[in-house]
Design a protein around this nucleic acid. Structure first.
Lengths: 338, 338
DNA sequence: CCTGGCACTCACCCCGGGCGAGTGCCAGCC
DNA sequence: GGCTGGCACTCGCCCGGGGTGAGTGCCAGG
């Protein structure tokens, strides 16, 4: 119901406003974009767009700025994803390739995303829930003290101390280790509880207490770590938010410190494909003047975690989406290789 | 050479300025602090203090604010460390006590420090250099793929993947694991290189390549991890910096993102006792309008890492120092227990 | 349906005056 | 000698007013 030209006007407004950060008027629009019509016509179009809620004026006799709804339309129908150039892609690959362990991969990814988009980057650690167990290791640190180490196929490592109810011999330990691994290695994390259910029964009465403790610690690790970790970076980019940002920046910083908030944020994104949440679409109040672009990534075809960026609603959507998508793709590759 | 009263005036100026964030004049001073002298006298004292460079006026006909040098004197001679109250101490202990692993301890410490001081908190992970090896574990993930896990007495765990030049049997693995541990377990990290020096020689020719690879990876881990990790939090508190902070906050955020900068910052602090770096005393330019209060902490008597807070030079030094010291003490306790 | 013209609105900038906190200095007092 | 009250002066801040210009809405004509 919006004519082609009106959409074009909206696109032009978004483009200019993102660039200049200032309300854009009809005259300036016709000058910078050859729309083929006069300012007066554009004014009529603007009035229509405002009527529909896609743009607004900060005050009478000022230019227009896009509303959240306007950005929404822009992202959905007017903007493509701007692909990275070949040199950029090479640089991404090269930068990520030097990582030594999972922490390093995540750390580099955060810095890379922040740099590419000049916004705040958020990267979730690969989840345990979806991934499979590569290996479970048990170490004896003291006669009645064990350490449990869980290694996943995404390279994540979790460890827990275990105080045994009774001393636990080396042979029993080797036995438990072997049986545990034969059952759970290569299996999905979510299947583990069932797989180890009756394991304790096959052990001596003396050892049974310890085995039970070990198993429950293992399951606890599973549950606790469904509560994910993440890393953020590029907060210095928040200073580019706007002139008035003492008020804007504060709630954003606060939201960023709340891992729970961020995880929920990423969690709300659809599993496949890119998700763009604009302004008030974000549930968290502190982020109501920001947009979040996120996408899943993973070592295989399946996404095991998400990453994204948080920036002002007034952001370069095509460029940001391109960068986010490219980084996610390469991180997936790196994880698959390791 | 400064009379007692002049020091008292300086103390009052610091106190008021920290509270109000506004230049403090002679009249207001005599009203809020019963110095027993008139404003005129205070003015003379102020002139003297300014002459010596302890205070300055932002512009003529304004009140005075302390200079870096003034804060220095205040911290060194006029301020004590304000001890935490008993309830606060209990809260600290309780909050830290619930941690499940090292990451959690560090995470909680950061949040705690940020909350207590209402400033930006920085906590360094316990160093590997000073600590001792609790256990080295080798896991076979694939015929020619090993994982090396290094566990320290501070609870830190590092892992590395190793691609072997040749397949490595289970018995050889057990052998290497046992010998490695008998040599390095309980030893200082810095002694490890020497202790494993000739280990490869005692192995079969076939395995020697793999053993060498394992050892060099172990030593690499040692070196790489001398490059420490740290965690920061409470960046939202930066918004309380001052009215003009778009300019102030940016370089600080940038500095905080540079782990290297922060590590150097903490590194410059003296090993024992508390260090307070004020304004330009900080080498990094972005931090020239901040003060850093840091202190070492450790599981035993020896400090294994440092923690601290970064805030505006205009901060409550006694309170901040009290909080930093208390937190460091309790973290040490928690680490010793685990 | 587009266009040029026109009157109108209103944020922004600049300016000048009044206000008041704060200072430095000085003469007098203890 | 050091403290005090008094006094003239400085200068940043607040406030109101007028000018400017970008931008708008509307309307009549093509």
């Amino acid at each position: 119901m919006l004519s082609e030209r009106r959409l074009e006007v909206l696109r032009a407004i978004v483009h200019d406003y993102v660039g200049t950060e200032e309300p854009v008027g009809s005259k300036a629009l016709t000058e910078r974009h050859h729309l083929g019509v006069s300012p007066a016509t554009v004014r009529n179009d603007m009035a229509a767009l405002e009527e529909e809620g896609f743009i607004a004026q900060p005050h009478t006799s000022a230019g227009r700025i896009p509303t959240d709804k306007g950005y929404r339309l822009f992202v959905d129908r007017l903007a493509g994803v701007k692909p990275m150039t070949a040199p950029e892609r090479r640089a991404i690959h090269h930068f990520l390739d030097g990582a030594v362990d999972l922490d390093d991969v995540v750390g580099r990814t955060v810095r890379l995303l922040a740099q590419l988009t000049r916004q705040v980057a958020v990267v979730q650690y690969p989840s345990l829930t979806r991934s499979t167990v590569r290996h479970v290791e048990l170490l004896s640190l003291a006669p009645a003290r064990l350490m449990l180490v869980l290694i996943t196929d995404t390279g994540r490592v979790e460890q827990r101390m275990i105080d045994c109810p009774a001393p636990f011999g080396e042979t029993s330990l080797a036995d438990l280790r072997a049986r545990l691994n034969s059952r759970v290695a290569g299996r999905r994390f979510s299947d583990v509880p069932q797989l180890v259910q009756d394991l304790a029964e096959s052990f001596d009465k003396d050892d049974r207490g310890t085995v039970t403790t070990v198993l429950s610690t293992l399951l606890e690790t599973l549950v606790e770590e469904t509560e994910e970790r993440l890393m953020i970076g590029g907060t210095a980019n928040l200073t580019r938010f706007g002139h008035d940002f003492p008020l804007t920046i504060r709630p954003v910083l606060e939201a960023l410190e709340e891992q729970v908030v961020l995880l929920k944020l990423l969690g709300e994104a659809t599993d496949s494909g890119m998700t763009v949440k604009i302004g008030h679409e974000n549930a968290h109040e502190g982020l109501s003047s920001t947009s979040v672009v996120s996408v899943g990534y993973g070592s295989g075809s399946e996404a095991v975690a998400k990453l994204g960026v948080v920036g002002p609603t007034r952001m370069d959507y095509p460029g940001t989406m391109g960068a986010v998508r490219a980084v996610a793709r390469y991180v997936g590759q790196i994880l698959a290789e390791s």
